[in-house]
Write a protein that binds this DNA or RNA. Structure first.
Lengths: 234, 234
DNA sequence: TACTTGTTTTTGACCGGTCTAAATTAATAG
DNA sequence: CTATTAATTTAGACCGGTCAAAAACAAGTA
């Protein structure tokens, strides 16, 4: 049985892989998990001995199929718990993440199935991230980072918003940048300021680090800004 | 922050204390937790250094006020989670224990309060054990072990039933020995067989070890066997 | 090519929790 | 009062996860 730490590493590597692709470097993992590089090296070593990662020294790691399955199980539990907390216990979407992080390692398969059932098999968590079904089939459409997906003047639909930093999340929610909403990139400066216009016409300046946490799907050419609910509302 | 292990020890000691009273011996703890006596000695050592236990070597330990508070917090979380699982996720009372054991160490105070709220401040978990309120006030009426409380011919109301061993629990449920029901002790043999009559008139032979897991409140003198729901139904 | 810089790995240490085996203590029977 | 027995504690070890410091490496630059 994987320990909490093992699951945390797997989840982090999965996340990084699905944004930036393999290989995933020691320092990326270290930063995501707030561990020292030395620690990560040693953990990554044991993970690859267990067949969860393939590793090339000084280069980085990549999840093996077995590792990806294990990671997806954690992701599934995490998101299901988030949806559950929001739905059954009236948590705000912004409060849900930390609780889920703690619980995700300790709920049984039975629990997971029951939660899924009372929630009637939700497709996404409160941040718009898709919930893998029990067979872990869908490889999930994570969208693309805002700046990469959209040139200035283009519009897109917000697919998800990172829930890592509660302050960032709250800021984005306040700005109306939430799953399902449409945003237009107005301008991208060389010094890392991204200006976006939301569907109500207001403009917001986002530091690059924040913009990177917003994933979008590019809208078809010159579509008028609609405010559809497409993802989200689990 | 107490670790999972620390909370487990505290909970076990609390349990033993409230049935058999202090001092609680190394071997009692070892048995309850399925650890070796050596392990228990070392843990008990660090717990008493932290002021959670008072300890006298070769004699046993007793919870300090601080230790009791910590133990009660765990007990509260455990029982609330049990009630929640049964109520919101349709778990059977017999299935609830293990899941709660895993979760009790990882739910936040916030979570606990919310659960309590949606359940409308339940008084007892599905086994009839009282749920300490947030201020941890009520010292809980645990009832008395069946054989100690009742001489042959006497009746009492089942207050609670240990949920430690699922098989035992299931047996008791099948026999109709559940919180709120009335039982009469028919006979106690010298070789550890306890015969009880339940409210429907049927008799059941219980090994002493099983009978010890049933706590009762003695009925007033020669009261007719009623089948009241008094505790339980969280 | 050789140096410098930043990243990664190695080394050696530590802590919490656990165990086995050996030593100690308490309780009891003779 | 002593010897036996059962429980407890000590001693020493190990594992998982972590870190700081030092060594090794990769990649770019002079």
């Amino acid at each position: 049985m994987p320990t909490d730490a093992v699951e945390d590493y797997l989840k982090a590597i999965y996340r990084i892989e699905s944004r930036a692709g393999p290989p995933v470097s020691t320092s990326q993992i270290a930063e995501a998990l707030e561990k020292t590089p030395a620690t990560v090296t040693s953990m990554v070593e044991t993970l690859s001995e267990r067949g969860l990662l393939s590793r090339e020294k000084y280069t980085g790691v990549e999840l093996t199929p077995a590792g990806e399955v294990a990671a997806l199980e954690v992701v599934r539990r995490h998101r299901l718990i988030e949806a559950f907390l929001a739905d059954q216990l009236d948590y705000e979407p912004t409060e849900v993440h930390d609780e889920a992080d703690a619980l995700e390692h300790h709920v049984s398969e039975e629990f997971t199935r029951r939660v899924e059932r009372v929630l009637d098999y939700p497709a996404a968590d409160p941040h718009g991230d898709p919930i893998p079904p029990a067979d872990l089939s869908t490889p999930e459409d994570a969208g693309t980072a805002l700046v990469a997906a959209l040139d200035p003047g283009e519009r897109g639909t917000v697919v998800r918003v990172s829930d890592r930093d509660p302050d960032v999340l709250e800021f984005l929610v306040d700005a109306g940048i939430t799953p399902g909403r449409t945003v237009e990139v107005v301008d991208v400066t060389s010094f890392g300021l991204v200006t976006v216009r939301t569907s109500d016409g207001s403009e917001h300046g986002l530091p690059e680090a924040v913009a990177d946490r917003v994933s979008v799907r590019r809208a078809a050419e010159s579509t008028a800004a609609t405010d559809g609910q497409e993802a989200g509302d689990a």
